[in-house]
């Protein structure tokens, strides 16, 4: 039957239901981040062989690999530049990179977005 107010039943029914939205910053537990989510990158310095495949494939030049000693490498990742495509994770032949589920990365300071991953055990203590 053609008539106005076709949705009224549904609308009134919703009055007695819980909201479909979640109160995000207050209730973080309700957030369900999928397992395949591509969040903040994690670098395992002990696995890196310094082949620079990740640097070459990164679409936004967000990652830099630095050689600090023989077979010891550090990674500088600019989270502000990173587009979270996780191509570096796919490109890495040694699985030295991993995309975590961490996503709350906003910052008002650009310098805080630059993260350095280093293997502290392998670096000789400096004076």
């Amino acid at each position: 039957m053609i008539r106005p107010g076709k949705m009224i039943k549904q609308v009134l029914g919703s009055l007695f239901k819980k909201p479909a939205t979640t109160e995000y910053p207050f209730h973080k537990k309700t957030l369900d981040v999928p397992a395949r989510f591509r969040g903040k990158l994690k670098f395992y310095p002990e696995k890196c062989i310094g082949c620079n495949q990740c640097v070459r494939d990164c679409p936004s030049n967000a990652i830099k690999i630095r050689k600090v000693a023989d077979k010891v490498f550090e990674a500088d990742i600019d989270l502000g530049k990173c587009i979270y495509c996780a191509q570096c994770v796919d490109s890495c032949p040694k699985r030295a990179l991993e995309a975590t589920c961490e996503f709350e990365l906003a910052s008002i300071d650009r310098e805080k977005l630059k993260v350095t991953f280093r293997d502290n055990t392998k670096i000789a203590p400096t004076k």
Binding site: M7, P34, R36, F37, R38, I83, Q87, A99
Partner: peptide, 28 residues
């Protein structure tokens, strides 16, 4: 009213896309 309900239902497909590809948009 239509906007509210269609966008609520759209979340179902967005969740599926996030689950399969890892992201809601820019699936990679």
């Amino acid at each position: 009213t239509l906007l509210m309900y269609t966008w609520r239902d759209r979340e179902i497909v967005m969740d599926i896309l996030a689950q399969v590809t890892g992201n809601r948009v820019n699936y990679g």
